[in-house]
């Protein structure tokens, strides 16, 4: 269960989990070529409480509903979602303007293991838009910095111009309390950073595997190989956490759209240990 107190919104969610709350777009920002970030104010004036790694079902009225991870700071500010426009619903959501209404149902799911990571080194591995669900965890790690050991962010993107939250990533790179390495798959001569896949950064990682927790989010193929690279580094399968993406509909473990074997991604995840996911990831077309 999420480690947040019960708000009025949460109470309503428990009573009527399929009914969205109304929010309005406060601000929108273009964060990557096909990704938009929406800042939302809840119509009831409440602050939206959630745990890092949880997701909401967002409604584009008249179009449909889609599962989108929260990408903001769980401790302050508005509710923030970063959306890649890939289908009709996400396209409609990404085109919402300031003041437009939006439906919010959530928060749902099990998030990142923030409590389990306390006292440990934390390696955060993000690929592409996978940085969005990890950003709340990074905010928490940096806000409560003394609770954690060494914090490392390894971030892979397609091209330099596709780097999500680029200015913020640059700010993090300038901090002394987090190690940030960014790599891109394809680059022109102007790029001065790493080129190569994100697993390549793991091979250079200097960490004590016995006291390290990993949080990984990105395309599923990338996560499989990142998990294997972390295992090669000596991390245990129980200490590697992956955030899964599936076609979520009800978000409460009833409809089965997001089912992987006996596991409901929406209810039991989206964050799982590699130990739990490994047999499922090996099954093709699940």
């Amino acid at each position: 269960m999420p480690d947040v107190p019960m708000s009025e919104t949460a109470a309503l969610l428990h009573a009527r989990p399929m009914v969205p709350q109304i929010a309005h777009v406060r601000r929108r920002r273009h964060d990557a070529p096909d990704a938009w970030t929406l800042e939302l104010d809840m119509a009831n004036g409440e602050r939206f409480l959630y745990a890092p790694g949880q997701f909401n079902m967002l409604t584009a009225f008249g179009v449909g509903e889609a599962a989108i991870s929260v990408s903001g700071d769980p401790a302050e500010g508005p509710l923030i979602h970063t959306i890649r426009a890939v289908g009709p619903v996400s396209k409609a959501l990404s085109q919402l303007g300031v003041g437009d209404p939006i439906g919010v149902r959530g928060p749902f799911g099990v998030g990142w293991p923030m409590a389990q990571a306390e006292g440990k080194d934390v390696v955060v591995v993000a690929g592409g838009l996978g940085l969005a669900p990890l950003r709340p965890a990074l905010y928490r790690l940096l806000r409560e910095r003394a609770r954690y050991g060494r914090v490392t962010l390894l971030f892979g993107a397609r091209r330099p111009e596709d780097i999500l939250f680029r200015q913020e990533v640059e700010r993090w790179r300038g901090r002394l309390d987090i190690d940030v390495e960014v790599t891109v798959d394809h680059a022109t001569d102007e790029w001065r950073g790493h080129v190569g896949v994100v697993t390549n950064l793991i091979s250079r990682l200097d960490t004590d595997p016995s006291k390290t927790v990993a949080m990984v989010c990105g395309p599923e193929v990338m996560m499989r190989f990142v998990a294997m690279a972390l295992i090669d580094k000596g991390l245990g399968e129980e200490t590697i956490h992956l955030s899964m993406e599936r076609n979520m509909k009800c978000a409460i473990g009833h409809c089965g759209h997001c089912q992987l074997g006996a596991t409901f991604i929406c209810r039991d995840g989206p964050v799982f240990t590699y130990a739990r996911l490994k047999p499922l990831l090996a099954v093709k077309e699940l």
């Binding site: 890649r84 890939v86 289908g87 690929g127 592409g128 990105g218 395309p219 193929v221 990338m222």
Partner: peptide, 19 residues
């Protein structure tokens, strides 16, 4: 072998939007 594997992953263009 590692570089061949990494090249395959780059070739897959995993982060590209698959709309």
């Amino acid at each position: 072998i590692e570089r061949l594997h990494e090249t395959r992953l780059q070739f897959l263009d995993l982060y590209k939007s698959h709309a």
